[in-house]
Write a protein that binds this DNA or RNA. Structure first.
Lengths: 338, 338
DNA sequence: CTGTTAGCGCCTTCAT
DNA sequence: ATGAAGGCGCTAACAG
């Protein structure tokens, strides 16, 4: 059997309360007894039983990140960050897949909340797109931090990337390379990033005096298949043929590049392709994807630390944080030679 | 305040034990009282407090998968599987990044065990390569299921893919395409797959009567950079120039393809490249990677269900499961035209 | 078939 | 500065 607080108390010849005080770093313990207790702790290999602590404090010391598994997520980078945080803060971090409107996802979420398994949540798009999550957490007064939420609220802390600024930077990069017929692949309607990136694209066109051509904007998804299909549609139609494609995100860009290669259209010689997100693969895929660095790990890290702060300090005000993005130029974009 | 078992008992006019029985699906309750209890449960929105259950049963209902974050893991597919299992079995699944020999990783693992946070573990390579994990779990009698362990043991249940068979299949595929100078990129020394795949490669050469040329086998890593560097070394040296590269895994294959493209050597016209693992990206990367399907999700699923079985039924014998692999032909391999 | 009692390991409150 | 008693919500063991 593993040692309990009683064993330590007996060995150190103090009461269990004193041991508790030492373990939790409370005041009112002489250096002498503290040392004796710590020695006893080491000697029996004591560690507090988390379940007992959880029960008596009515906390789980566990937080949950809801993540949509449909994307080719930078999950391993996120895991790295969460490991560090969970180590430092002594919270366990559960990464929970969540599909909006999916019955099983909802039931799982409900059970996590009902059974007091989770102290606080972080949502990532598009998990916040349905009101279900927010309403549920609000009803049960479970703290929430949103990453790139669809709707921003004063009441809920959030961490967001600069989608509009990033999209502008990409569009201007392409314009500077001499491109005029720049296609934009619109993302899904349940993610704010889709709209913000479109706005950044449009704003840059206006700024540079290039007329907006709705034929060049095409509805797509933030997936390989979405980008592939959209690119084929554009590239097969002589009337729509662009000299550059700004895909809504990196995954769609991979699809666009694949389609282009498949059709014998070399990238970047005859078609420039830009992405958004700077996923790990983007520097590995030939010829290297020009993209906007929008570090998911960083957003997750900030949100997680923010949430833990809030859990520790109930009075914390909702914080709203904007993380800047930046252009990463690789070889998938080049001068317009047409 | 949320409802407790007492509230339900009061409302249903039974004892708390009866409520407990109903909740846990035990026998010896009349249909009548069961219905009354269930009605009360619904009426007050009761769900058992997990922490209390954990404390009294001295179980955490949580299992942990140790995963090395250095690879470009198919993490999202794994998350999908674990969601389903955790939903069905009512276990939470914690995916914990783990670097062998890394102090922080070890401390985190120790604290998970000491504090009774985890009922059982699953290891993935190369987390099992150091004895630390196995020894620790053995000392504390924490159940373990290994995925592709470095050393297989009768005492420890494991789930493994068919590395040798897969490597043979790939090698024979290349030989059938007319390749004779087939280079093999060896994986890291702390993973058994590296050796097994090498053996499969060698066995097929022997079988087809092709002499083994040590110059064509090169030490590498299971990473993009490893494959990139190895490919450059091979392709820059006229004496070593192969007509096909069998990379140790898909990530290394991505690197080899990138290097080849960079040097103006078209794939598959002048160089065939084969991988191993069939990661999601492998069908998205141009020209589509020929590889061995070795479904990580499936291994994880089997191992996880196995572990939960073991936790539920202490007498379960260690199980040893071999999952077959199969060749996936895409466009990165083609006939030897040299 | 149902209920009573005890206790899991810890923290909180209130004494001392 | 330290300790004693009580209870968090639940289940196990035993009665009835």
């Amino acid at each position: 059997m593993t040692a309990t607080i009683k064993d330590v108390a007996r060995l150190a010849e103090v009461s269990i309360k004193t041991v508790s005080r030492v373990i939790n770093g409370e005041a009112h313990v002489t250096e002498d007894t503290r040392a004796r207790v710590l020695a006893a702790v080491r000697s029996v290999g004591y560690a507090p039983n988390i379940s007992a602590r959880r029960l008596v404090q009515n906390k789980s010391y566990m937080i949950c990140i809801l993540m949509y598994p449909g994307f080719y997520q930078p999950a391993s980078a996120i895991l790295n960050i969460t490991m560090d945080i969970s180590y430092e803060e002594n919270y366990d971090i559960l990464i929970q897949p969540y599909f909006p409107s999916h019955a099983r996802s909802r039931e799982k979420l409900v059970s996590l909340i009902y059974e007091h398994r989770i102290d606080g949540f972080i949502t990532t798009p598009p998990c916040d797109a349905e009101d279900f999550v927010g309403d549920l957490l609000n009803t049960y007064k479970v703290p929430l931090v949103q990453i790139n939420p669809f709707n921003r609220s004063d009441q809920i802390p959030f961490v967001v990337g600069d989608d509009q600024g990033g999209a502008s930077a990409m569009t201007e990069h392409l314009i500077q390379l001499g491109h005029r017929r720049i296609s934009f692949l619109m993302g899904p309607r349940n993610m704010r990033a889709s709209y913000d990136r479109l706005e950044g694209y449009q704003a840059s066109l206006v700024k540079c005096g290039i007329p907006y051509d709705p034929n060049l904007v095409i509805d797509s998804e933030f997936t390989f298949d979405g980008g592939y299909t959209a690119a084929r549609i554009l590239l097969e139609d002589p009337n729509r043929m662009p000299s550059a494609i700004f895909a809504g995100n990196d995954e769609a860009a991979y699809g666009a590049i694949f389609a282009s290669q498949e059709m014998g259209i070399p990238v970047p010689e005859r078609l420039s392709v830009g992405g958004f997100d700077n996923l790990t693969m983007s520097k590995y895929i030939w010829p290297g994807l020009t993209t906007i660095h929008q570090p998911a790990e960083e957003l997750v890290e900030i949100a997680t630390r923010q949430l833990i702060q809030q859990l520790k300090n109930h009075s914390a005000m909702p914080t709203q944080i904007l993380v800047p993005s930046r252009l990463i130029v690789r070889r998938s974009t080049g001068p317009n030679l047409s």
